[in-house]
Simulated scan of single mutants.
Amino acid sequence: MQTIPFDLEGDHVELNQLLKLVGLVDSGGAGKALVAAGAVRVDGAVESRKTAKIRSGQVVQLHGVEIRIS
């Protein structure tokens, strides 16, 4: 599994924006579609909230890619 480190600059980042910022999707809308389809996991559980607040220490997974938030 590929791992992408992501350094959080504030308190949190919205899930759909995170997927865009790390380059896994071209737009926030594409990120929302993947979340709605159940393709995204946060800390091992399927996440259905498109704008879920992702905070430091969490791990997001999509299509064999793991994003570690720090």
Rank of each mutant, 00 (worst) to 15 (best):
L24Q: 07
F6R: 06
R41L: 08
V25A: 02
L21G: 03
S70P: 05
V22G: 06
G10N: 15
E14H: 09
R55P: 02
D26E: 15
L62Q: 03
V25D: 01
A45V: 11
R68M: 10
R49Q: 12
N16I: 03
R68S: 09
N16R: 09
S56D: 13
Q58C: 04
D26R: 12
A36Q: 15
D7T: 13
V60N: 00
G31V: 03
E47D: 07
A39H: 11
A37V: 07
A52N: 07
Q61W: 05
L18Y: 02
L18C: 06
G31D: 05
Q17P: 01
Q17I: 14
S56I: 06
E14I: 03
K32L: 13
G57A: 11
V35Y: 00
I67K: 01
V42L: 11
K20Q: 15
D26I: 02
D43V: 09
V46Q: 12
G38Q: 14
E66L: 03
S48T: 14
G57W: 08
S27F: 08
K53N: 14
N16P: 03
D43E: 15
P5T: 12
E47S: 09
V42K: 04
V60P: 02
H12F: 15
H12M: 08
A39P: 02
T3K: 09
H12S: 11
G64K: 01
L15Q: 01
V22D: 00
A52L: 08
G31K: 01
G64N: 03
V59K: 02
G64W: 01
V59S: 03
S56G: 14
D7K: 15
L62F: 09
T51S: 15
V35I: 15
Q2D: 11
K53S: 11
D26C: 02
R41Y: 04
T3G: 03
I4C: 11
K32T: 13
